[in-house]
Design a protein around this nucleic acid. Sequence first.
DNA 1: ACTAGCCCCTGGGAGC
DNA 2: TGCTCCCAGGGGCTAG
Length: 292
Amino acid sequence: MPELPEVQTMVTDLKKAIIGRKITGVWIGAPALIKQPTAKKFKKEIMGRKLLSVGRRGKNILIELDRDFILLIHPKMTGHFLLGRFRIRGRGRNETVVGEINEERNKKDASYIRLIFYLENGEGLGLSDVRKFAKVMLFKKSEAAKFLGGLGIDALEIKYPEFEALIRKNKKPAKPFLMDQSRIAGVGNIYADEILYAAKVHPLQETSRLSRERIKAIFSAMKEILNKAVRLRGTSVSDFRDIAGREGDYAPRCAVYGREGEFCPKGDTRIKRITIAGRSSYFCPVEQKLSR
DNA sequence: ACTAGCCCCTGGGAGC
DNA sequence: TGCTCCCAGGGGCTAG
């Protein structure tokens, strides 16, 4: 599921592929993904816009368009972009996308495309999203604060003093703290588990009594793991693909995520899975002891 | 102001 | 083989 490194991979790809190009058409297969404004108005307003720059804040992709518009895409669980040539098959509600993208394995992926931005040369930028959880918004630059105001500091931007101040104020256990986008933006379920494992902190650890040493360990593990995952172009445990349909290379580096019952990389203890706030959490009960 | 819990959605895997 | 059931999960929303 796209977290900061996967979103950054998409942003890097998009920068190369679409900057300076113009949106010549839009196909909306799942109007419910468009949260702002209405799908009809969205289509009208985005037509003919030029793509000026691509950025990221937490897990949100922000594309700057001409006339001071911002296009925001949050991929949620299964959203990702594919660049290729697409045909629409069927009619009305039964319309589906057939992709002429590079490889056979991506054909299925293309059929999950819910939204296409057509570019000048007939190529399309498709948003593939099996579960239709993705969020797409279009608004004026002047309204950005309204739609991004609730987001905390990006996990790759935050400096240690700010991080320590946030974690000291925090009342949640360590894992929900890392995943709270209103404090620090970008860390999701997979990387939170990996960060806490590397920092030797139990996911249910209350953060109020953590020593400065442990807080520093969490902070540096966060930076190191996210940066490494960015270099490896993300984790593809399920649906994540880059713009060309390729998987990321970080998944084999995961020490604990998705590895219930396997041995901890540092010993002969088996990795446990527990549920925290409705989410699976993987950890090593020996490496990550609760302390108080 | 804050938090816990429900809900959105679909494919894939387990179980029978 | 084929059916049904349950699970995955980020974050928006609501009730408390």
